[in-house]
Amino acid sequence: MEAFLVSTGIVALAEIGDKTQLLSFVLAARYQKPWPIVWGILAATLANHAFAAAVGTWITGVLGPDVLRWILGLSFIAMAAWIMVPDKLDEGEPCTLRFGVFGTTLAAFFLAEMGDKTQIATVALAAQYGAFAAVVLGTTLGMMIANVPAVLVGGRLAERMPVRLVHGVAAVVFLALGIAALVGWGLEGSS
Score class of each variant (00 low, 15 high):
15 E>K: 01
15 E>R: 01
18 D>I: 01
19 K>E: 08
22 L>N: 03
22 L>W: 04
24 S>H: 02
25 F>K: 00
27 L>I: 04
27 L>D: 05
27 L>K: 07
28 A>F: 07
28 A>R: 12
29 A>P: 00
31 Y>K: 00
32 Q>P: 00
33 K>G: 02
35 W>H: 09
36 P>D: 06
36 P>G: 06
36 P>N: 07
37 I>L: 05
38 V>C: 07
39 W>M: 05
40 G>C: 05
40 G>L: 05
41 I>G: 03
42 L>E: 09
44 A>T: 06
45 T>R: 02
45 T>F: 03
47 A>Y: 08
48 N>D: 15
50 A>S: 15
51 F>D: 04
52 A>S: 13
52 A>G: 12
53 A>Y: 05
54 A>H: 08
56 G>S: 13
56 G>D: 15
56 G>Q: 12
57 T>R: 03
59 I>E: 04
60 T>Q: 14
60 T>C: 06
60 T>F: 07
62 V>E: 13
62 V>K: 07
63 L>A: 15
65 P>L: 11
66 D>L: 12
67 V>K: 10
69 R>I: 01
70 W>E: 12
74 L>A: 14
75 S>W: 02
81 A>K: 10
82 W>Y: 11
82 W>F: 14
83 I>L: 07
83 I>R: 10
83 I>N: 15
84 M>E: 12
90 D>V: 03
90 D>F: 00
91 E>T: 07
92 G>M: 07
92 G>I: 06
92 G>W: 06
93 E>K: 07
93 E>L: 13
94 P>Y: 06
95 C>D: 15
98 R>G: 15
98 R>C: 10
99 F>R: 14
99 F>T: 14
101 V>S: 03
103 G>Q: 12
103 G>T: 09
107 A>F: 07
108 A>W: 07
111 L>D: 10
113 E>K: 08
113 E>Q: 15
115 G>D: 12
115 G>T: 10
115 G>R: 04
116 D>W: 02
117 K>A: 10
117 K>Y: 03
118 T>E: 08
118 T>V: 07
120 I>A: 09
120 I>W: 03
122 T>R: 01
124 A>L: 05
128 Q>L: 10
131 A>H: 12
131 A>T: 05
133 A>Q: 13
133 A>L: 13
135 V>R: 01
136 V>T: 09
139 T>Q: 08
139 T>N: 12
140 T>P: 14
141 L>R: 06
142 G>W: 11
143 M>N: 15
144 M>I: 02
148 V>D: 11
